[in-house]
Design a protein around this nucleic acid. Sequence first.
RNA 1: UGGGGUGUAGUCAAGCGGUAAGACACAGGAUUUUGGUUCCUGCAUUCGGAGGUUCGAAUCCUCCCACCCCAGCCA
Length: 568
Amino acid sequence: MTTTDSASSPSFIRNIILEDLKANKNDGRVVTRFPPEPNGYLHIGHAKSICLNFGLAVENKGICHLRFDDTNPGKEDVEYVESIKSDVRWLGFDWGDHLYYTSDYFERLYDYAVELIKKGEAYVCSLSREETREYRGTLTEPGRDSQYRGRSAEENLDLFERMRAGEFEDGSHVLRAKIDMASPNLNMRDPTLYRIRRVPHHRTGEKWCIYPLYDFSHCLSDSIEGITHSICTLEFEDNRPLYDWVLDELNVDCHPKQIEFARLNLSFTVLSKRKLVELVRQGHVTAWDDPRMPTISGLRRRGYTPEALRDFCERIGVAKRDSMVDMALLEHCVRQDLNKKTPRVMAVLRPLRVVIENYPRDLVEELDAINNPEDASMGSRKVPFSRVLNIEQDDFQEDPPKKFFRLAPGREVRLRYAYFVTCVRVVKDEQTGEVVELHCTYDPQTRGGDSPDGRKVKGTLHWVSAAHALEAEVRLYDHLFTKPNPGDEKDGTDFKTCLNPDSLEALTSCRVEPCLKGAAPRSRYQFERLGYFCVDSKDSSDEKLVFNRTVTLRDTWAKIEKAQKKKR
RNA sequence: UGGGGUGUAGUCAAGCGGUAAGACACAGGAUUUUGGUUCCUGCAUUCGGAGGUUCGAAUCCUCCCACCCCAGCCA
């Protein structure tokens, strides 16, 4: 199992566990679980829970189970269980032998239900769905007892057996706990424990036609597995009395402690399964693993590392207040990780042709370039330089504003690892006036990028040799939404109205350094001065390289530029 | 409106009766062959508000306010 990356900061859950350990509760064992329903792909909110549960186990020499909470067939599928397993593994966690399914407990859960019926604590109710709702009362008014509440244990047993045997239609009967229809906690107003649902289950097939509900199955599954700390999100706080009620009534020997924490919200994206499904189904993104998605698979395809995600989960902390974490923190985490690990390479996204007038026509020089200034052990490589180059269109301005340190007519800049060059002529398209080519001269004395006379230039540009560069497609990603909190639909607007139309920009005629030939899918690079990129796992091939931008570099020039535009 | 929760900086978050950690963001500056990295500096006289207890309160008490969750045979 992976250890946590950084020292753990205190959290209220850690404190609870530490106290329990101190008091020698559970014989000093810590057993947690990550219990997803396999009805969708995992997202970064799940990563928070995964890191929390597995992390707490690792820290305390405990174990963490992976349990699929598969009690609602029809919504669930093996596709999801497979993706969930691979996502958890990719994040760096290992459940060992502790892979479980609630469906494995169906028989035992049934027996527990029978026990409850025999004790007179549960009954078969034959109210319709609508009647059940009416009888439940409201937030302020108590509910009313169902007329079926008084059925004898014998009758209930008989009915429940026949429910299981498939004698009744879906919806005709349910099993309910007999608690208190006047409870101020609606969850305690005789909650439904079992329903009839003739839908094939992805694991049990047609064996069952009755399925337990969350409130009955979850606590018992925890108990069966010997979970010590059952950690879930805030919306289950009101379910805790019911969690405890079931375990108390059934007198089981393991009664886990349920602890609730606030789910993650991330700015400029949505993390609700319903909304993510909608984005996929309606084609606003290509798939669950679209690099713009906040899913684990999307982030993976985007180029995020497990280390960055774990670091993020550690940094955001765990507490009970509703919060909205700044996407900038996530971006900071990947940058920090990638900065240390990633080889540098030069790539030109929007090429502008540059001719070095005084450079010999047939000469090609192999210049030394450092692979990673953060890590000398990564060595260096050769980069071909020749008379015709490409630079970034953004790196030239005919009429440069203040503080623009890049190329302009008459100005000298450095080409990284190559030479100082001076722009001597600008060639424009006669029709459009667009700059199509630059002519420069180079100073042979500055080979490698140093000037022997000590003269300085303010700008250093990246470049590729036109004849040697490889063509590539580069996909630039931006926030999926334009608003920091797209999930806030209180003013009646649908979250999709603030979908960012520019969240994807695919550039098809980019030029990259020849060393990238045959770059492996998923391999990561820093394109100097631009950002971190990875080879797309699905669409890239040896014939056609496709890169995804994971994140840009911090860009102080962009800030200055923005500030200047505002002033004007 | 009944019940359950939560309020500490722009965003997260520690703090648990002894005088407001840390991170991100932001703003300056230094170094730099990436406008990157790194390094410095600044950024809450005050903890939702008002009272009270105390030598001392973000921490304890009272009242008030705001926000979130619950009326699935979803999880």
